[in-house]
Design a protein around this nucleic acid. Structure first.
Lengths: 209, 209
DNA sequence: GTCTATAAATAGATAGAC
DNA sequence: GTCTATCTATTTATAGAC
């Protein structure tokens, strides 16, 4: 510990939020521990309940932040004046950017998928609907221009987020496997993965596959 | 309940195994509840501990079964005398088949990815290494024939399992979203998804993307 | 806003009868 | 092999002082 930090108002809430995001990401909702979150935030449990109504509310605040950010980013992409194929590239890049900005994002999203969205509240479900809607509009635009074939938005979305989330979420697991073997598990850059998913997504929309 | 079931020896162990698989899939390791597993198996907690050493051992037995089955299936594919491109198709189909045969498979795999393989023991990690090794050999074969470009096995693997697992795991979530909106979330068949992933995987290996 | 207890409930694990 | 009862530890949540 170096110099004393100047503590702004609302700072402890941010610390709780950040610590909770990390905890939920690495242990899941049920596995997360309020006391561990408190200690990671350099606070105590009571302070969590001072800022948030409970474990579920805390988790939902994180989900809302995640998907709210993605929603805003992809709505902006869909509303831009770029060509449909550029919008698809932007769409992929936007999701990758938001995911990368939040290390907890990929694990939490993967878990919610696995769990069937058990903890997702109605408002956040609306964000997800908007995200899918934005992609649907981009596809419809490209279809109208005769450049895309009309694939279901969900299928395209799955093809984008699934490998993206898995790639971002597996850095630790890949290292673990690499330690036990000589498999070529490493050496794939973030840029290469994003570029690859952009190409694959476009190729399937343009019927090249 | 119809006629009385004839209860074979070892039957209760199977019931525990099946109930536990479903519980771990829908709630994760930490969220799984031994008492709930017992009730779903029409038994009591003590019987779980009679068959398995504890919660961790029970979970690892399920992981071992899952990845052992995948390992066996893809090793057979890699050892077959088919052409490299057919082996890739068979590889994708084999993983889809094993995942489909076990409804708990996709959620559990997704969770393990999210968690960085925390619960995976060394033996099961070996299975995963073998799976990746089999894919690596198929790619090397195709590269040697001049048909494939030498992509890292892990990247190809991620492109296969990520959308597959997400597709199989999201049936409930897709319904939930569909109920709240008119998004075209449904209407994608299992066959279409498998065929699509086969095409995309081959296209990238053959440098068509 | 922040803390120290502590209440209250849950859940993994086991003892011991049958 | 199967059960009931229980022990013990963990953990969400809150009361109340500062």
């Amino acid at each position: 510990m170096a110099a004393r930090r100047r503590v702004a108002a609302g700072d402890s809430r941010d610390r709780v939020f950040a610590a909770a995001a990390a905890e939920f990401a690495s242990r899941g909702f049920a596995g997360a521990n309020m006391d561990r979150i408190a200690r990671a935030a350099r606070l105590n449990k009571a302070m969590i309940y001072y800022h948030f109504a409970g474990k579920t509310a805390l988790y939902r605040a994180i989900l809302s932040d995640m998907f709210g950010a993605v929603r805003a980013a992809v709505l902006a992409v869909a509303a831009s004046d770029r060509a449909p194929d550029d919008k698809i590239r932007d769409y992929v890049a936007a999701i990758a950017r938001e995911a990368e900005a939040r290390p907890h994002f990929p694990p939490i999203w993967l878990r919610e998928i696995a769990e069937g969205g058990t903890h997702v509240d109605e408002a956040t479900l609306g964000y997800l609907r908007d995200v899918l809607g934005a992609l649907g509009r981009i596809i419809a635009e490209g279809t109208h221009d005769g450049r895309f074939q009309p694939l279901p938005a969900f299928m395209v979305q799955a093809g984008i987020i699934a490998p993206l989330m898995v790639f971002f979420a597996t850095s630790r697991l890949r290292e673990k496997i690499a330690r036990l073997t000589q498999a070529d598990v490493t050496g794939v850059s973030r840029e290469a993965v994003v570029a690859h998913i952009q190409r694959v997504t476009l190729a399937q929309l343009e019927g090249k596959i």
